[in-house]
Design a protein around this nucleic acid. Structure first.
Length: 497
RNA sequence: GUUCCCUUCGUCUAGCCCGGUCUAGGACACCUCCCUUUCACGGAGGUAACGGGGGUUCGAAUCCCCCAGGGAACGCCA
């Protein structure tokens, strides 16, 4: 498929309008999916599910310098990882495609030219350099950096002639100077006064549309019924309203949601090297926890129960319940929530998710029986906030990763401690494999009686010798899992410290 | 400079539309205690907020006005 069937796309205008809700997420592919974008996508997804409508994913790749196909793939992959796939979009099918704006150029061009014919727009032959210096001058004079109207004075024939002569031009919309207003689901009636914008470009000299033009056109032809997007687009509405009006179209419903800020209260920005979905997933956050957390940024459940499965969020979701003010993305709370999700999982479900992290860190998990791994997991599950934390907790169970931490070494250097461990060793040899808590208790009681130590002085040396650390899971879990042989080996090591 | 949006504990928020039930509720974080001869988990408490000023009203977080602060747009970026 090479050329676009404009006729069929345009003919949809005359066709029946869908009765279902149609929302869209429209990222520009310039990197990984950002958590802010993910949240916008999520809200659209939730609204689509809630209203039993369709979610469209549209790629806004009209900026050919910044947009890449690789980025598009990354974004799509991140969305798939979150299990929030759209109903229509590149690779998803749908009757309103193509879903990449770069592939819809002809529509934009045709429509921009029709604006020319309607005298709602004109050709602008100004070069970028000219415009640049004009804008700078205006700014320096503390005037609004609007277009100065140079090309409005060019006559019809002149304009035509210059275009035919091959001179480069952009198509610039004449901005009517009057009030514009629209209803926003969150913010009520928003009114724009005249003077906010000057004549603006809708079609670049390279034939690509400009954002404000392409959104309006695509939202219209893709039959979008509700636009849920970040409120950084709110002040763009005036231009979009002008374009809509020029075509005589009806506008969809709008909900401009608040932005997500970083801990510094500044807008989260890709340039600041932050927070893509990809990064969070790599760090061991669970998609379901990330989604749950994101949903709570700007939206709140009617009953206050924060941790809940997606389908409950869908049921409870409502545009009316969205918060208008920006929200700071708090990693601490995400961390807590992720830990809650991890703890709520069965070890059976958790194991496959944790395995990749273990493998990456060089644990020889492949040689270990599953039953053993499940028990190890159970012993440390409560300590995990992110999946990657597993690496730091599980080393005591693997012979190859076993080492003494400094504070454990220091403790073992005391003769008191060595005495305890020596007796401990004898008792373990006597009893054989530790199978149960009572086995261990017998051993510990014997050590206590023979050495006369108790409390911390009794228990900590045993812990230090067996695990190489002063803290960690209970010995009654650790010892059966590492076995007598390894236990004795470690004890001997500790005695040499 | 002009225009638009926002403003409740450190953070996420409930309450605001339909003023009294708000001595402002919940969650994260923090602190204390309990559980535990470790760590974590868990349990019980605690500290902590209506940006400021004017109105309206018997009564305002809630309604009105002004101010301040923050954000956004004014681009052939999205």
């Amino acid at each position: 498929m090479t050329s676009l069937d404009i006729k069929s796309i345009l003919s949809k205008e005359a066709g029946p309008h869908p009765t279902e809700t149609r929302v869209r997420f429209a990222p520009s592919p310039t990197g990984y999916l950002h958590v802010g974008g993910a949240r916008t996508h999520l809200f659209n997804w939730l609204y689509a599910r809630k209203t039993k409508g369709k979610l469209i994913l549209r790629v806004e790749d009209t900026d050919q310098v910044r947009s890449t196909r690789e980025s598009e793939e990354m974004v799509l992959k991140d969305i798939a990882s979150l299990d929030l796939n759209p109903d229509e979009g590149p690779g998803f099918g749908g009757d309103y495609g193509p879903y990449r704006q770069s592939e819809r150029q002809e529509i934009f061009q045709m429509l921009a030219v029709s604006l020319l014919a309607k005298k709602k727009a004109y050709r602008c032959f100004c070069t970028e350099e000219e415009l640049d210096s004009k804008a700078k001058a205006a700014k320096a004079a503390n005037k609004p950096p609007h277009y100065d109207g140079t090309c409005t004075h060019i006559s019809e024939e002149q304009s035509q002639k210059r275009a035919e002569a091959g001179e480069k031009f952009s198509i610039r919309m004449t901005a009517p100077q009057k009030d514009y207003h629209f209803e926003d689901a969150l913010r009520g009636t928003v009114t724009f006064k005249p003077g906010m914008v000057g004549d603006f470009v809708v079609l670049r000299s390279n034939g690509m549309p400009v954002y404000n033009f392409s959104v309006v056109v695509d939202d219209y032809f893709m039959r979008i019924t509700h636009v849920i997007r970040g409120d950084d687009h709110l002040s763009n509405m005036i231009r979009q309203l002008m374009i809509t009006e020029a075509f005589g179209w009806k506008i969809p419903k709008f909900a401009h949601i608040s932005m997500i800020l970083g801990m510094d209260k500044k807008k989260l920005s890709k340039r600041e090297g932050a927070s893509s979905v990809h990064d969070y997933l790599n760090a061991g956050f669970l998609p379901e926890a990330l989604i749950n957390f994101l949903a709570l940024l700007g939206w709140s459940p009617s009953d206050g129960k924060e941790i809940r499965p997606l389908d409950e969020i869908v049921n409870d979701f409502d545009l009316e319940r969205l918060n208008k003010s920006p929200a700071v993305f708090d990693d601490e709370k995400l961390l807590w929530m992720n830990g809650e999700y991890i703890r709520a999982m069965s070890t059976e479900d958790l194991l496959p998710r944790v395995l990749p992290f273990l493998e990456k860190s060089g644990y020889n998990v492949a040689t270990k029986p599953k039953e053993w791994l499940l028990k190890v997991l159970a012993a440390v599950q409560g300590n995990l906030k992110v999946l990657a934390d597993i690496n730091a907790h599980v080393d005591i169970f693997f012979d190859t990763k076993f080492t003494f931490e400094q504070d454990a070494k220091t403790m073992m250097q005391a003769s008191e401690a060595k005495k305890v461990v020596q007796v401990f060793r004898q008792e373990i040899e006597k009893i054989g494999e530790i199978q149960s808590e009572s086995d261990l208790q017998k051993v510990q009681t014997a050590v206590k009686e023979q050495t006369g130590t108790k409390g911390k002085n009794l228990f900590m040396p045993m812990r230090a010798a067996v695990t190489g650390k002063l803290h960690g899971p209970e010995l009654k879990f650790v010892m059966p899992l590492i076995g007598q042989k390894e236990t004795l080996r470690r004890i001997d090591l500790s005695l040499d410290l």
